[in-house]
Amino acid sequence: MTSLPDRPAGAKKLGLVIDLDTCVGCQACATNCKEWNASGHSAPLPDFKPYSAGAEGVWFNRVHSYEAGEGEQGRTVHFPRSCLHCETPACVTVCPTGASYKRAEDGIVLVNAETCIGCGLCAWACPYGAREMDEDSGVMKKCTLCIDRIYNETIPEAQRQPACVITCPTRARHFGDLGDPDSAVSQLVARRGGQDLMPELGYGPVNKYLQPRERSSALTEAKPVEDAPTPMDIPNPLLRWMDRVLSR
């Protein structure tokens, strides 16, 4: 089972496209994920010492913030981090029990909570920190891409998206089939030059990140009106308005 499924080129690759140019770091994706999944496929997502020092819990989505570059020229970037549902996920192949698996039908990486022994090796093997140990029940948990939402026939069709996507107030998260070059998400990735994280490790992450766009210093080529008369140049700059003919 932990051998990767044979997936032909063009097979469905469900995943997320995260727009770092638009994310304001509001944590909506993180908490909406938490509330959906707390009672969802991998329920519960326990929190330890929830009301005292050292509170920590299982979260499938965590939003960091970074600064890139120096001083006023730099950027502050909010950076949501979750499972990237890699094409060659070592978290799956290192699993000794077969609990971790990559689905042949859509590429989603899941953990079978019934057979996971909680060895933690998959967390070591994941470069992105996507694995979340439930130390209460001793099994590994992770982003399911809301598998109990995206195909859920009891949910209106437009809402069949991962919780983090449907709730994102700046629409910085997009969900779709990245295996289909014609899909909206693939086109978005192509248009904006979506990137892999840590491509040098060769995991083939399916989720893509859209980098902050180049900021031109000015939207227009507007130049200050240097040659306009200044108060210092003419004794009464108001004169120019005295004879202006206006009507309603």
Partner: peptide, 19 residues
């Protein structure tokens, strides 16, 4: 820089952790 993909902007420094 490669972990965040932000290297093109410049040196990357963590500002705040998620928790």
């Amino acid at each position: 820089e490669s972990a965040t993909g932000l290297g093109a902007i410049g040196r990357v420094r963590p500002l705040d952790p998620p928790h």
